[in-house]
Amino acid sequence: MIRAENLSFKYNGGEVLKNINISFKPGAVTGIIGPNGCGKTTLLKNISKQLSISEKTVFVEGVDIKKMGSLEIAKKIALVNQNNYIAFEFTAIDVVLMGRFAHLKRFQRESREDVAIAYECMRKTNTFEFKDKLVRELSGGELQRVMIARALCQKADIILLDEPVSQLDIHHQMEIMHIIKEASINEGLSVIMVLHDLNLAAQYSDEIILMKNGGVFKKGPPAEVINKPNIEHVYSVRPEIIKNPVTGRPFIIYYDNFSNQI
């Protein structure tokens, strides 16, 4: 699983991650939350070596990610980005099959097995029915599911997702969270995802990482991290936290910080 040690990261503008020390829980769904600009996405890009990082800061199953080749990393970590605009006329199955890249040699063709894996991942994500449709013609929810199918098709142990549901309606949000959760439970996948919606994070995560100003503010199970003082402190809002009557998880109701009317 992934571990970060003394991980700091600077863009040209300034320091975005400050001395982060965390290890992610294997086989669990970890939700990363925090206000805009706190470094959530940057953390995700660091632990997947999308950005060039320093030596001995990120370890995947004990191995320094800096020393791992791109194929090696791809077999361990799959990534679903936030922005999934595709400029060309690829079909859904074309995109899902791209997830097999790390498993194929240069002059090797996709085998029946590769195609079978792709189909299986598409069935799991309810995308099989439009496998031959162009991705450009898919709705936001459909496209996101195709992207998740592609990540599953990579057969990595760890999946990173950057705000997978932020642009979807509530039904599609639930659908995608459910698919991700199922994959984690059934296949022992470790899921690390950045989420904006704290209630979704509370409902679906086994563990929550609450970030503030480039550092980890709190880490733990939802009930421990999502409480009134933490949310109030990190987000500068006035929350009221109740127990979700169905799931038993914390559920947040917000009030703004700018008026006294409650």
Partner: peptide, 23 residues
């Protein structure tokens, strides 16, 4: 021709291509 899979991946996006394992 021998780079057809890299071409697919790169035309989807560089970050995606990287995550598939494309150098």
């Amino acid at each position: 021709f021998s780079f057809h899979r890299e071409l697919n991946a790169i035309s989807v996006g560089e970050s995606e291509a990287k995550s598939f394992g494309v150098p």
